[in-house]
Each structure stands twice: as C-alpha cells, then as structure tokens.
Amino acid sequence: MATPSNLGLSERQAVVLTVGFYMISALLMVSCNKWALNTLEVPWLLLWCQMLIAVVLLGVTDSAGVLKMPVLRKDVAKALVPLISINVLGLGVNTLCLVYVDTSFYQIARGLVLPFTVIFAYTLLGQPSSKLVLGSCLIVFCGFYTGVTSEIDVSQLGIFFGVVSSITTSLHAIVIKKSLAAVNNSSIDLVYYNNALSLMAMTPIVFMSGESSLVVERFREEGLAAFHSFLLAAFITGIFGFLVNLAGFLQISKTSPTTHMVSGAVRGVLQTLLGYFAFGDIITSGRLLGIVLILGGGALYTYAKDKEMRANTKPSYIPMTQHDIDGDDTERRKNGRA
C-alpha cells in the first residue's frame, strides 16, 4: 500500500491531502445522495446499492494488491453486531433526514452530535468534561434550537430523523473504539466487515420497506429511461460511498480528533454553500445564525480539547482514531511498568 514516504510527501502534506480528500468525498456524497433521492425516493434501496458497490470495489482493491481484505469470520461478525446495528440505523436515518430536509438545513438537523457525544462519554464511559466543553455544547444546542425554531415550513419528521442521526453518530464513535479490538485494531478490516455485514443486514430491510416494488412499478410506467436513471444514480452514489469509506480510513490513519472536528466544521460551511448554489436552498437569517452557532460551538470544543492536550491532561474526548487508541495502550503499559 502507498505511504507518504514512498510517494515523496511530508507528513504535513499527507495530512492536508487526507483531510481534503475526506471533505471533498463527503460533500460529493451528500450532493449525490440528494440528487439520487430527488430522482427516485427509495432511501433504503439506495443505501443497499451503495454498500454493494463499496464491497465490490473493496474486493477489487484486494485483488489488485492495493489493500488487503480479511476473510469473514463468524466469531468476529458476532462481536461486531452492535457496530453493524448502529451503522445500519445511522445510515438509514441520515438518508431519511436528507429526504425530508434540504442540503443547507441538514447541517442544523444533525447539529446535536457534539452534545450527545459528551453525554454518552460521561454516562457510558465515565469521562467527565470541562466547563469549556460544556459551554461549547450549550452553544451548539442554542444553534440547533435557533435554526429549528426559525423555520416555518421545515419538516418535523426531518428534524426527528436528524436528532436520531445525531444520537447514532455519537454512539458510533464509542462502538468503533470497542469494535477495533475484534479485528486486531485494523481500521481497514473494520471498514470491510462494516460494509459487508451491513449489506447483509440491510437486504431484508429493502424488501420489507416495499421500495423494490416501487422501483418495479416506476420502470413499468416510464420504461428503460427510469431504469437507466436509477442505475446511474445508484452507481454514482456507490462510487462516492466507496470513496468516503476510503477517505475515512485515511483520515483515521493520519489525523487526530481535533483535526477531525476542524474538517467537519469546514465541511459544514461548504455544505451550506453547496446547498445554496447547487440546489437553490433558501438561507434565512435564523438558519444562518443556527449554523454559525453550531460551527462556533464545534470550534470552541476543538480549542478546549487542544488546550487539554497541550497541558498534558487526560483528554475527555472519545478516542476516534487508531493513533489515539495506540496512545492509550502505550500509556497504560508505561503505568503498569511503573
């Protein structure tokens, strides 16, 4: 597999390229999903197609010798049931949220990720937070409340799916940390298991949702043109789904939670602009204020975490990268020897 050194890149250049690749892939993924859902409103079938294409492409990278995929094992799959359950639920509510709200409001509807992350870190992991972190959560909540209450025609169902999405995203970070041990702390193995098992889990959901029947009916009414449009939408979103997986793997390998939060904030701004220019979303003053507060709270959280790390105190964030987990294990070993 290519590394920064054999590509002639410095560590700083590798981080910049990794974060840029992740942000671009994630933005294109949201845009393509919105376009595909505007073409045909079948969110579960669309997710299923994305996962299928991602698994196929991961298999191609294995055959080409770019990445080594693991052999699926029953004991590992059993240990990853919590991760797969949260992943399928999270992807579902993310997409359903995008069905009911426009691209620029998507940032607000899913704006409670940080407060829920801090809550679950305390209730599930026993990790307390500083006053500065709690203040950042309050600012984020005010941004969410301002954005939601300032809208007149916004879908309440979309907001509901956005809140559930915030909860699943927060829990996802915790479950990923616990799940890495099942795959010997290999991020790429976890990516492959996550996609392959989620694809299996989502197959019965697609049939139970009735979306397959809807697609067949649409084909009968509009002929091959509708079939080609759906295949094109599924293929393009599947490609970008694969790229987001790959970008997420690279970001996990090369960056820290602070960098992750900063890139997420920048992505939120770009996503809002994309909704305005590409999809004609209306940016009201209340919506704009809500987005600014959410991003401002995220920036304050990043500052607080950076301040904690510089002071060499034990950070209260959830380790989200392999680097963090390795660092925690090293510290425990040092303390054990002491």
Rank of each mutant, 00 (worst) to 15 (best):
S253T: 13
V76E: 02
S316N: 13
L295A: 05
V292Q: 03
L9N: 05
G296W: 07
D329I: 15
C137V: 08
G275P: 07
I176M: 05
D102H: 12
I108A: 02
V16N: 10
A54W: 01
I318Q: 03
F161E: 01
V163F: 02
T284M: 04
I282N: 12
V66I: 13
R310H: 13
L114T: 07
D281I: 04
I252C: 06
V292M: 12
F227G: 15
L46E: 04
T95C: 09
K314F: 05
N184C: 06
F242Q: 00
R220C: 08
K305S: 11
G223M: 10
K178G: 00
G248I: 02
W35I: 11
T284K: 02
L114Y: 03
F279L: 11
N335C: 12
L72W: 01
V81W: 12
V163R: 01
F105G: 00
T237F: 02
T146V: 13
L40Q: 13
S179K: 02
N87G: 12
C137Y: 02
S198H: 05
R267S: 11
R267I: 10
D102N: 15
F227P: 06
D324V: 08
A14S: 13
Y303M: 12
G298E: 11
R12G: 10
L83M: 09
M261F: 11
A265K: 12
A36H: 03
L134R: 03
V216H: 10
Y122G: 04
L293N: 02
L40E: 06
G59F: 03
A109D: 01
L288D: 01
L27W: 04
N185L: 09
I108P: 01
G298C: 10
V269A: 15
T103P: 09
V56N: 05
I176L: 08
F227K: 14
K305W: 08
L199V: 07
L91Q: 09
A299I: 15
Q271Y: 07
L91I: 12
F120M: 09
A225G: 09
D306E: 13
T61Y: 06
A173R: 09
A299Y: 12
T3F: 04
Q127E: 11
G336H: 11
N94Q: 11
S179L: 01
L246G: 00
V266K: 08
T95P: 05
S213E: 11
H228N: 11
S179D: 05
R287E: 04
Y100A: 03
G248N: 13
T18S: 14
I325L: 15
L293W: 00
K178N: 08
I188H: 00
V164R: 02
A26E: 05
L224W: 11
N94L: 09
S63L: 12
P115I: 01
L7M: 15
P4A: 06
T302Q: 11
C97Q: 07
Y145I: 15
L243T: 03
